Simulated scan of single mutants.
Amino acid sequence: MPIEYRHLTKNELDTFIEMRINQLREEGAKEDIDLRPALKAYYLRHLADGIFVSWLAFDGEKIVGTSGMSFVEKPPYFACPSG
């Protein structure tokens, strides 16, 4: 079956959040709080305003790959006057 690529939607958000938490655990992050509510609020807010975009790779109905990018605009500073 060929890999299918789709934009992240609310339908996959809970699975995406669990994948993010697993990534943080694998990277050695300390788990002092339940991060799910904050992640859900972040993704819902920034998927809606376009600041966060994500593509998912599906093999059938199984997610086999993800991507994510947050867009940030920095103010100008001396080393980079355009920001």
Rank of each mutant, 00 (worst) to 15 (best):
P37V: 10
P37R: 12
A38L: 14
A38W: 08
L39V: 09
L39E: 11
L39F: 15
K40H: 10
K40T: 13
K40Q: 14
K40R: 15
K40N: 09
A41R: 12
A41S: 13
A41Y: 07
A41M: 07
Y42D: 11
Y42Q: 14
Y42N: 13
Y42A: 12
Y43I: 08
Y43E: 06
Y43M: 14
L44G: 00
L44F: 00
L44D: 10
L44M: 10
H46C: 05
H46Q: 12
H46N: 15
L47A: 03
L47T: 01
L47R: 03
L47V: 01
A48E: 12
A48N: 05
A48T: 04
D49R: 04
D49I: 01
G50P: 02
G50V: 05
I51E: 12
F52N: 06
F52S: 07
F52E: 04
F52A: 06
F52G: 02
F52P: 01
V53R: 11
V53T: 12
V53G: 02
V53K: 08
S54G: 07
S54R: 04
S54D: 05
W55M: 11
W55D: 07
W55N: 07
W55S: 04
L56Y: 05
L56C: 06
L56T: 06
A57I: 10
A57K: 06
A57D: 08
D59M: 09
D59C: 11
G60Y: 08
E61V: 12
E61P: 01
E61S: 15
E61A: 15
E61Q: 15
E61G: 13
K62L: 11
K62G: 00
K62Y: 07
I63K: 04
I63F: 04
V64C: 13
V64N: 04
G65E: 11
G65T: 11
G65D: 11
G65I: 11
T66A: 12
S67A: 09
S67W: 00
G68S: 09
M69W: 03
M69N: 03
S70K: 06
S70V: 03
F71T: 10
F71P: 00
V72T: 07
V72A: 08
V72R: 06
